[in-house]
């Protein structure tokens, strides 16, 4: 058995935060769409996967990770916009399970599409040259890219927060998620806002796919486990809450990481136990509003 030193605990914590960063990003997209549209997006994992594929594709095309970082969310967001406009929109007002089933089907279509376009084997990825290697973080060596992952998540979260809290569009989004009928009465075309939010949510999913791509194998099935994990995060944080998504994402990452240290066999189970406990104590999630589903 390994000796548990403070250094090891700190390193394990940092690993959990890096892991949680991806969870948080995914959950933000999911939560944004649910909070505003009350659409449970089952294609979220698939958008993540498409983001990883397109990200690697743009990377090989342009040779620059940074270009890809801009192009990928635009491309995935565009697919999201089209999906909302032509697939999800006709189902509004029909109850929560219609868009759920539709997005579930859409996820299969996207997986098959990637198989057809890029093949079943997936694509080999490598860390961008600028972000390769390990750095000394004071209590051990840690991959530079995972530090970048934490930082990138922080930047995206802050930008999103500013957008929602400080801009006119953000104000409408916030108002729309509280009471979309009043917003409509005030003469705002809510369907355009919904389109935008769906696009934004999927763009963030695509971006997290690209960000995760250098750390793991890119293949058409990579979004499937990710979907389950991001639902856990969303439920723990509270459906529809952005703060909840971030806090719960990091929390889930850290719980997973710490369980891996002491009882690796239970690491995967641990996040579901966390979810169960949260649901028992606080059914609406850590930051959720009660009765949102009703």
């Amino acid at each position: 058995m390994v000796e548990i030193t403070p250094q090891l605990l700190m390193l394990q914590l940092l690993t959990g935060l890096a892991l949680g960063a991806v969870y948080a990003l995914l959950a933000i997209g999911l939560s944004l769409i649910f909070g505003m549209l009350t659409v449970v997006n089952f294609a979220h994992g698939a958008f993540f996967m498409v983001g990883a594929f397109l990200g690697v594709y743009f990377l090989t095309l342009t040779g620059s990770f940074w270009f890809s970082l801009v192009l990928t969310p635009i491309a995935v967001g565009a697919i999201g916009l089209l999906s909302e406009r032509f697939l999800v929109r006709p189902l509004y007002g029909r109850g929560i399970d219609y868009p759920l089933l539709l997005t579930f089907g859409l996820s299969y279509v996207l997986v098959e599409a990637m198989r057809v376009i890029f093949g079943i084997d997936g694509m080999p990825t490598s860390t961008p040259t600028e972000l390769r290697g390990v750095v000394n973080v004071g209590f051990g060596m840690f991959p530079l890219y995972r530090l970048f992952l934490i930082a990138a998540t922080a930047v995206i979260v802050i930008a999103l927060w500013l957008f929602i809290e400080k801009t006119r569009y953000g104000l409408i989004i916030r108002a729309g998620s509280r009471d979309n009928e009043i917003v409509r009465v005030l003469g705002i075309d809510i369907s355009r806002i919904w389109l935008l939010v769906f696009g934004l949510g999927t763009a963030i999913a695509g971006l997290s796919g690209l960000l995760a791509a250098p750390t793991r194998a890119v293949n058409p099935e990579m979004g499937i486990p990710v979907l389950a994990e991001s639902f856990v995060v969303t439920v723990v944080g509270g459906m529809g809450s952005l703060v909840g998504a971030v806090v719960a994402g990091l929390l889930v990452g850290v719980v997973f990481s710490m369980t891996s240290l002491f009882a690796p066999e239970y690491a995967e189970l641990s996040i579901f136990v966390l979810m169960a406990v949260v649901l028992l104590v606080r059914p609406q999630g850590l930051f959720g509003k009660a009765g949102l589903m009703g």
Binding site: V2, T5, Q7, Q12, A18, L19, R216, P225, S260, L261
Partner: peptide, 12 residues
């Protein structure tokens, strides 16, 4: 898909 949480222990 992510083994990172096992790695600090292996390192130690």
């Amino acid at each position: 898909s992510d083994f990172s949480s096992f790695l600090p222990r292996i390192q130690a």
